[in-house]
Amino acid sequence: MTGNQQNNEPKHKRDLTRRKVVVAGAGAAVAVGAGATLASGAFADETTSSVSASGTSSAEVCYKLTSETTEGPYYIDADKLRRDITEDKEGIPLVLDLKVIDSESCKPIRNAAVDIWHCDALGIYSGYESLSTGGGGTAPTGAPSGTPTGEPPSGAPSGGTGGGGHEEPTDDERYLRGTWRTDKNGKVTFKTIFPGWYRGRTVHIHTKVHVGGEWTDAGYEGGTTCHTGQFFFDETSVLASAEVEPYSTSTTERTTLDEDTIYDQSGTAGGLLKLKYNKKNIAKGVVGSLTMGVDPDATNEGTSL
């Protein structure tokens, strides 16, 4: 990934009063790996339970505001309206069960547009393949250690998901990116793969929540961005993923959750996912769930943090 992204770069500006989602046409085939098919069946019950665990009930306790983070330079504005963002990318199947609520009232926020985007199993971002260094190459002699050598870089880390300015896309690839609406209970589910890692950052997924816009035949238009955040994975799950191909072929130094410069160490309030998977065979798939407490009246674009 590029190392020339600096914190003093001009911030990317976009017209949020005219946001559009480009709907994937019927001819755009979405290839789902065999592992993803397995996860959708093997984890059906767990998906239901993790959703219901964060569902609305009289006993639900209102959440703290979910931490805001930087957008990073690799955001592409609501490019694909879809729930399955896997395309043909190899990796451990991951189902994300998310819920969006008003952090003050605890009421679900319906019809919000939720974006997610992340790198592939070897640290490459679609749309920016020429800027991504990734982690492919000769397989290392062992799995990434829980304690990487060296200190995390200050400022914008290599790979650019820190505070640097927005980069314009360098290619037309859009795998591992998608946008979908929340239902009447504030819930939305995505199907993807477990992300890999790259130098300077722990394993993570980016997200945005947009409200106040309009869903049309063309997609989602208008509104504001009330939340920009990231989802994180505990060290146990990441070390387990590192034993599975293609993650195991990565030669890239890994930053742990404790050493990451973006994660604020506040657990679920900071975006730490609740994970369910077979501890003896993570390759079968993972279900991650999280309730995001947001302020629907706020504007948090993540470009000036």
Rank of each mutant, 00 (worst) to 15 (best):
I85V: 10
G35C: 00
K187S: 15
G196H: 02
Y198L: 10
D15V: 13
K11T: 05
W197A: 02
L38Y: 06
T249I: 11
G41F: 03
K13T: 08
T47L: 12
V95T: 13
A24P: 10
G146R: 11
S57T: 08
L96I: 09
G72I: 07
N281Y: 02
Y128S: 06
D77I: 03
L96P: 05
I282G: 00
V244H: 01
L96N: 09
Y277M: 03
S266E: 15
D171A: 07
P153L: 11
E253P: 11
Q6L: 03
E9F: 14
T256P: 14
H166C: 06
R199H: 13
V95C: 15
L16I: 08
P148I: 04
G135R: 08
C226A: 11
N300Q: 09
P140S: 08
E245H: 04
G160N: 08
G127E: 06
L239I: 07
G293Y: 09
E214P: 00
P140N: 11
G223C: 12
C62I: 10
T66D: 13
G200N: 13
K208W: 02
Y74T: 15
H118K: 04
G186R: 12
P144H: 14
N300E: 10
K284Y: 05
T192S: 13
V21S: 07
T69I: 03
G212I: 08
K284I: 02
V22P: 02
